[in-house]
Simulated assay, not measured.
Amino acid sequence: MSLLEARDLHVEFSSRGRRARAVDGVNLQVGEGEIVALVGESGCGKTTLARTLLGLERPTSGSVLYGGAPLSYSSRALKAYRREVQLVLQDPTGSLNPRHTVYEAVAEGPRIHGMPDEEERVASALSRAGLRPPERFLHSYPHELSGGQRQRVVIAGALALDPRVLVADEPVASLDASVRGEILALMLRLRDELGLSALVVTHDLGLAWNIADRVAVMYLGRIVESGPVEQILKSPSHPYTQALLSVLPESPSPVVLGGEPPDPTRIPHGCRFHPRCQVLAAGTAAGAGVDGRCRSQLLPVLSSSADSQVACHYAGARRR
């Protein structure tokens, strides 16, 4: 069952007199007890999509659905929604007030929502986040903790509200490699023990491989490939996904993308990836007879199906 869903979602901003289509037609679902990785390089729109799913940005068109019902943007409805859909930020140091103890940081959410049994709730959240015994950390300040411990405090702050969904924006990007595995293992344990769902926003396909059930690859405001994580990462169909995977250490030959990074105010005709596409540049798309379509023919917006999907003229020609 779909718990959190983007349906034909568009988010636009005005930038220096031009219109930036940050999210330009996205269908995406996060099911109950499911971890979905949203992957793409900086500027592709994934953080804007995550903020819109959290109700922090209002869509230009389309809708966000939670439990099958469209999200309401009244203050009361958003307050109730954000208790159940919680954000975990990239930088735990910036997320925590240096003047607040761990207890105060974790208790802030329950106080805002008027939840009972504050002390028990804080201790339980810290314990579930792997800070045991919780009494050891209650009166500590952020500067007295390691980076991994600070990230656990941020996660505990979310858990204190008993959410159903976590939206984690680059949750381990600021951590040492030795600590990243611990935080990823924690998120998997929370999924298994509490039934939590999660949308994990990342530029790292290696992280997606280790934690996600499904992966959605985003480029210039749209999902260009999606499906079960093993299928997409073992046999990627889209040239952009192939390029992202090629930078992993085990890849035999990295793909260096040419052209300019994506600009949401200047979306090209045809396939939006074609100015940087290594398959088109190498003449392989021409050999398949699709190079003209790559440059001029729009691709359909992918559905929110859990099956493997790709928005690519060349991949479509190979499958036929």
Rank of each mutant, 00 (worst) to 15 (best):
E5R: 14
A6W: 02
A6P: 02
D8M: 07
F13I: 12
F13C: 06
A20D: 02
V39C: 03
G45V: 08
E57Y: 11
Y66D: 01
G68H: 08
L71C: 03
S72Y: 02
S74C: 03
Y81L: 00
R82L: 00
P92M: 02
T93E: 07
G94H: 10
L96K: 00
H113G: 03
P133S: 14
P133I: 14
P134Y: 03
E135L: 09
S146V: 11
G147T: 10
D162A: 15
P171T: 14
L199K: 11
V201D: 00
H203M: 05
N210K: 14
A212R: 01
D213H: 15
D213P: 07
I223V: 15
E230Y: 12
L233S: 06
P236R: 13
P239R: 03
Q242R: 15
L248Q: 10
S251H: 09
E260L: 08
D263W: 06
R266S: 14
R266D: 10
H269N: 12
L280P: 01
A285Y: 01
A288H: 14
A288M: 14
D291R: 09
G292F: 01
S296D: 08
L302K: 13
L302T: 07
S303C: 03
D307Q: 14
D307L: 10
Q309S: 12
C312N: 10
